[in-house]
């Protein structure tokens, strides 16, 4: 087990190195010079050269890369090209917002999605099953930007119940969490249904039922717990997805999360922020994957990693 964890961590380091190289190369492939953005549209060539020197962009690419890696090795993420703000502060402001959004929306999605999936599985083939799954499919199919805008129109403009601009209060997470939860909810409900179905047909459940255990106990203690394992993967994957993929929801609700920060920084060619941000998201994704896999082993004693 320890060996497995070590191997996975080594693997993670490899992926991180890959992300560093690929991000750096891709950023420099994008046309548009950061110095132009910073010095402004009307800047003289001299101003642009000045900015380039200040940011070290006048150096050859390999030198820039070596410097970046050197700083990274020392744990120095640098400062934003645009504002001189340390990258750690920019990310430190954005990450918690995205992380909370991810937690809330996944909590909501799990709280609704798992029961829906169980209902569908237990009543397989009935109208309840069909209805539940169509609802789940709807969640999977609704464009989040459209949903978000309409939630604002309904709850903020027409009804005035919820604030439309993000102020960091817990209530401000409701609409964006609902917007994002739809997609995960659908995946979780479907996963729960199918793994419940699989578990329900297995021998030990039949045995338990035959032994006369109360129906409820069969479902909860045995079936659901086992069925939840694959659901965990879906939740884990979605956590990564929400952290990095919420650009639109974040911008509609004026949240300065990872998505809006990175998109703005890509447009500004603010290399230090983009490099660090993508690295953080990639590591995040890898660590969550690792944790889900380990959690598997904990919940299900049948799983052993060599």
């Amino acid at each position: 087990m320890l060996q497995y964890v070590l191997r996975r961590v080594a693997h993670l380091a490899l992926v991180a190195a890959g992300v560093v190289v690929v991000t750096f190369s891709m950023l420099h492939l994008i046309p548009g010079d950061p110095a132009h953005v910073i010095a402004g549209d009307f800047a003289t060539q001299e101003s642009i050269e000045g900015v380039r020197r200040r940011l070290g962009l006048d150096q050859p690419l390999p030198v820039q890369f070596a410097r970046y890696v050197g700083r990274l090795a020392r744990g120095d993420l640098g400062a934003s090209f645009r504002s001189n703000v340390p990258v750690t502060r920019e990310l430190g402001l954005s990450y918690p917002i995205s992380a909370q959004l991810a937690v809330y929306s996944l909590a909501l999605a799990t709280a609704v999605g798992v029961p829906l999936g169980v209902v569908a599985a237990v009543r397989r083939g009935t109208f309840a099953d069909l209805a539940t799954m169509v609802v789940a499919m709807a969640g999977l199919s609704i464009p989040s930007f459209w949903l978000g805008l309409n939630l604002i129109l309904l709850f903020s403009v027409r009804l005035g119940w919820l604030r439309s601009i993000w102020g960091g209060a817990p209530a401000d997470y409701i609409l964006p969490s609902v917007t994002l939860a739809m997609f995960s909810l659908a995946l979780i409900a479907r996963q729960t249904r199918s793994s419940m179905l699989e578990v329900l047909t297995q021998d030990y459940i039949r045995t338990a039922r035959a032994k006369g255990l109360a129906v409820r106990a069969v479902y909860y203690r045995h079936a659901l717990l086992n069925a939840l394992i694959p659901v965990l993967t879906v939740i884990g994957l979605n956590f990564g997805y929400i952290l990095g993929g919420t650009v639109i929801t974040e911008s509609i609700f004026s949240m300065r999360g990872m998505g809006t920060l990175l998109v703005a920084s890509i447009l500004d060619r603010d290399y230090p922020i983009v490099q660090a941000g993508i690295l953080v998201l990639a590591l995040n994704f890898a660590v969550i994957n690792l944790l889900t896999d380990l959690l598997y082993a904990l919940i299900d004693p049948r799983i052993r990693y060599e």
């Binding site: 909501l108 709280a111 829906l116 237990v122 919820l162 604030r163 817990p170 997470y173 409701i174």
Partner: peptide, 27 residues
């Protein structure tokens, strides 16, 4: 019966999440 129970749980959790998130009055 068990399903009814589940529905209740689902609703309760949803309400709790929503209420917990509501916090101070909006606007």
């Amino acid at each position: 019966q068990s399903m009814r129970w589940w529905t209740v749980v689902a609703c309760a959790v949803t309400v709790a999440v929503a209420a917990g998130a509501a916090g101070p009055p909006a606007a």
